[in-house]
Simulated scan of single mutants.
Amino acid sequence: MLADLTIKEYLAKTAGDEAVPAGGCAAAMGAALAASLTRKIAKLIASRMDIGEQKIQMESLADNMGALSDEFTHCIDADAKAYQELMAAHKMPSKTEEEKVLRDEQIQKNTLIVAMVPFDVAEMAMRMMDYIAEVAKLADKNLLSDICTAMFFARSAALSGLQTTRTNLPSLKSKNVVVDLTIKSSEIEKQAVTKERELLDWIKSSN
């Protein structure tokens, strides 16, 4: 399990000769870091508040970020597993017509999973950016650099996840799936870039 490795072990594996972990896992890792950092900031803000609606909001948001961090961490291993199963499908026997059909079905099935795991990471990371912006509005100036770091990681996770998805789309035979994911990927990318720019503009205008 990649998620159980130490940071040094994970980095060594990423730099190693094995196919995974690679880009999809890195996208999930970046998103998990963004969620964890946002959780830390939200908890800190809540700890400085008296009992009230905003304190409850920050505590709830911190809990949500904890759950998201766990989900992104799960996606690290899910991405690696999906890729390994795709490689196994490519190695299936294909001497008979029946074997060829079964092999092709498994390749298509696992290619879709390989495309969908980073897509899900990208979509969740993009939506998480709204929560990061909410935290920013209640953070003091000393926390804004951490807020920006979380936002940058989230945007990077979204864009890199989408790129991994797009890389696998040409291998899918379902044109409807390809068109749907292409359209949705473009929208997610647009929203991620916009959300990051809006936060930076807000910080600039508030200083």
Score class of each variant (00 low, 15 high):
5 L>E: 12
10 Y>S: 10
11 L>Q: 11
11 L>C: 11
11 L>T: 14
11 L>S: 10
11 L>H: 09
12 A>C: 05
13 K>A: 14
18 E>P: 01
21 P>Y: 14
22 A>Q: 13
25 C>M: 07
27 A>Y: 07
27 A>P: 04
27 A>L: 11
28 A>L: 06
30 G>A: 12
30 G>C: 11
31 A>Y: 02
31 A>L: 06
33 L>K: 00
34 A>I: 08
36 S>Y: 04
36 S>G: 14
36 S>T: 12
37 L>A: 00
37 L>W: 03
38 T>F: 01
38 T>A: 02
39 R>D: 08
40 K>T: 12
40 K>M: 14
44 L>A: 07
45 I>W: 00
45 I>N: 00
45 I>F: 00
48 R>G: 04
49 M>A: 01
52 G>W: 03
53 E>R: 01
58 M>F: 03
58 M>K: 02
59 E>W: 00
61 L>N: 03
63 D>K: 03
64 N>S: 07
64 N>P: 01
65 M>W: 00
67 A>K: 07
70 D>N: 11
72 F>S: 01
74 H>N: 03
75 C>I: 02
77 D>T: 02
77 D>E: 13
77 D>N: 12
83 Y>M: 10
83 Y>S: 04
86 L>C: 07
90 H>V: 00
90 H>N: 08
90 H>T: 01
93 P>C: 00
94 S>Y: 02
95 K>W: 02
96 T>C: 03
100 K>A: 01
101 V>Y: 06
102 L>H: 06
103 R>N: 05
103 R>I: 04
104 D>A: 06
104 D>G: 01
105 E>A: 01
108 Q>F: 08
111 T>M: 05
112 L>K: 08
112 L>A: 15
113 I>F: 01
114 V>P: 09
120 D>W: 05
121 V>E: 14
122 A>D: 13
124 M>I: 04
125 A>Y: 05
126 M>I: 04
133 A>F: 10
133 A>Q: 09
135 V>Q: 08
136 A>C: 14
138 L>D: 07
139 A>E: 10
141 K>M: 05
142 N>P: 00
143 L>R: 02
143 L>T: 01
145 S>I: 12
149 T>S: 14
149 T>M: 09
150 A>I: 09
157 A>L: 10
160 S>Y: 09
163 Q>R: 13
163 Q>W: 14
163 Q>F: 15
164 T>R: 13
166 R>M: 15
167 T>V: 15
168 N>L: 15
169 L>W: 14
172 L>C: 14
172 L>S: 12
173 K>A: 08
175 K>Q: 12
175 K>S: 11
177 V>L: 07
178 V>S: 03
179 V>N: 09
179 V>P: 01
180 D>H: 13
181 L>M: 15
182 T>R: 09
185 S>A: 15
189 E>D: 05
189 E>G: 13
190 K>I: 01
190 K>N: 11
191 Q>K: 11
191 Q>D: 06
192 A>W: 08
195 K>L: 10
195 K>S: 09
197 R>E: 14
200 L>N: 08
200 L>G: 03
200 L>C: 06
200 L>I: 07
200 L>Y: 08
203 I>P: 10
207 N>P: 00
207 N>Q: 05
